[in-house]
Design a protein around this nucleic acid. Structure first.
Length: 491
RNA sequence: GGCGACGUACCCAAGUGGUUAAGGGGCGGGUUUGCAAAACCUGUAUUCACCGGUUCAAAUCCGGUCGUCGCCUCCA
């Protein structure tokens, strides 16, 4: 049996118990991108939040059908394609390929369905047909409009009132200012399909209604997306789907907060302050980005500044290093026996490990509170490290840290953090950070070697001079039992 | 102008009626170290934008003020 959970529903503005349409199953539709440009770290927040949410649900034994669409027919795509002298669909294709690169770099799960507008024209037309037949839509001068006044509940998601909206451009053939296009009459140079209402292409909102129905049915469990989509996009989806099918469209609306710049403004293409995903993951491990998102509650605005990723990387390294320490411990006695000999730190670690899963999932079950859940992980990390200071821990502590290792596995499975082995992680940190700082690792190795020789000769002055030089290059040298190791300074 | 969200330490941030206000980063002190680093210990908010109210009890509820942000046009 899947574990029950609670989630904030934009529709009711409350945290509610989740009740699925079909027992044990979650149908999740998340608005993907309009592929006219590359994805930036603001998009990535939505991707990562819902990716982690799906992992968590599955770990909690829900069967999840996850859908994330591409909008590949759209005004902005056409405009951009024309600027670049290429076919709109080709531009979209190019950006979808780039998206998949970014998604893989971020370690995102593959949704069950990634529908595209251009491949769902029949479904879209079928739904428009229903709306026209039901007199929720009308055709005027080649364009088919949704008649907003025909849907009494319009505004229930966003709280917007039709009359309160700012005055809009007067468009020929449009009956009400809030009406929006379902099917746009074709213009030269635009992607065009035949339809009962004349040649044209879908409007912006209809595709999500149609694709959600095709992939998940007329009522879906959870519809997700960025907070900025609530109005008009999601409001219009509700209007279309509920008018067409006469039943609830989405039971829960889950919106992630937006990234804001240190200036306070959101990150947005129209504001010209974007950092693309590929730029960020070239400089830092993708998991640092993931941790950066998950350390905050998904609904809060999240400030972005240049310290964000270094800070997140420092946190992530703390997690990996603690797990490394725990994995290195040996021993085959009963945990309780070892704990009795090794004292209260061992007992505390065993206690925290035993309580971990319940506390961790209590946090996630209450509106996916990853911030709170992660604080428990860090408590566990401190307990592991404290225990590891005991001289006998290395040889006998294995049974004591076993529970903590299970806990780290839970974190990996349910959030997608700690997914690498520590060597791969540290290697990635070195590669990316050194490249970012323009440092050749071979130079570092040479200096380390020279310093090792100086130390062997007890030439402390030389050894310290080299350490200082390395420190200038943001390199930490760790003199351990097995010789000198070096790592990139994270902060 | 309409709709909505938010304001917790140097920074990020959890907490939404009741023990000493989580956790992370940073900074200071200590243990450790040839020197360091990592790790651990310790100090960093008698207080939760401000004012008033409800209550035995509020960061948490109510009212007001100030400030910030999002949406109302494309936006994750």
């Amino acid at each position: 049996m899947p574990a029950p959970f609670r989630i904030y529903n934009t529709l009711s503005r409350r945290v509610e118990d989740f009740e699925p349409v079909r027992p044990g199953h979650v149908g999740l539709y998340v608005c993907g991108m309009t592929v006219y440009d590359r994805a930036h770290v603001g998009h990535a927040r939505a991707f990562v939040v819902f990716d982690s949410f799906v992992r968590y649900l599955r770990h909690r034994e829900w069967e999840v059908t996850f859908v994330r669409n591409f909008t590949d027919v759209d005004d902005k795509i056409i405009k951009r394609a024309n600027e670049r002298g290429m076919e709109p669909i080709a531009l979209a294709e190019e950006n979808i390929a780039l998206y998949h690169q970014d998604a893989d770099a971020l370690g995102l799960l593959h949704p069950e369905h990634e529908p595209r507008v251009s491949e769902c024209i029949d479904d879209i037309q079928e739904m428009i047909g229903r709306l026209v037949d039901g007199e929720h839509a009308y055709v005027s001068e080649g364009t088919t409009w949704y008649a907003v006044p025909s849907f009494e509940e319009y505004g229930k998601l966003s709280g917007q009132k039709v009359d309160g909206l700012r005055s809009e451009d007067v468009v020929a053939g449009k009956r009400h200012p809030a009406d929006f296009a379902l099917w746009k009459a074709s213009k030269p140079g635009e992607p065009t399909w035949d339809s009962p209402w004349g040649p044209g292409r879908p409007g912006w909102h209809i595709e999500c209604s149609a694709m959600a129905k095709t992939t998940l049915g007329v009522t879906i469990d959870i519809h997700g997306g960025g907070l900025d989509l609530v109005f008009p996009h999601h409001e219009n989806e509700v209007a279309q789907s509920e008018a067409a099918h006469d039943c609830a469209f989405a039971r829960y609306w889950m919106h992630n907060g937006l990234l804001t710049m240190s200036s306070g403004q959101k990150m947005g293409k129209s504001l010209g302050n974007v950092i693309n995903i590929d730029e960020a993951v070239a400089r830092f491990p993708a998991e640092a980005l993931r941790l950066y998102y998950l350390q905050n509650h998904y609904r809060s605005p999240l400030p972005w500044d240049e310290d964000a990723l270094p800070t997140a990387l420092a946190m992530l390294s703390r997690l990996y290093e603690a797990r490394e320490v725990a994995e290195a411990m040996k021993g085959s006695e009963e945990a309780a026996d070892v704990a009795r000999d090794l004292g209260p730190d061992a007992q505390e670690l065993i206690r925290l490990s035993a309580d971990f899963e319940d506390r961790f999932f209590d946090a996630l079950d209450e509106d996916f509170n990853t911030s709170k859940a992660l604080s428990y992980v860090f408590e566990l990390v401190r307990a592991v490290n404290r225990f590891s200071n005991h001289k006998k821990a290395r040889k006998r502590g294995g049974p004591v840290v076993a529970g903590a290792l299970v806990a780290f596995g839970i974190v990996r499975d349910s959030l997608g953090l700690l997914a690498m082995d520590v060597d791969a992680f540290m290697g990635e940190v070195k590669t990316k950070r050194l490249a970012d700082m323009g440092i050749d690792p071979a130079d570092i190795d040479a200096l380390i070697e020279e310093r090792t020789a100086a130390r062997a000769a007890k030439d402390w002055a030389r050894a310290d001079a080299i350490r200082a030089e390395l420190t200038d290059k943001h390199i930490e040298v760790r003199d351990g039992a097995g010789g000198a190791e070096w790592r990139v300074r994270l902060s």
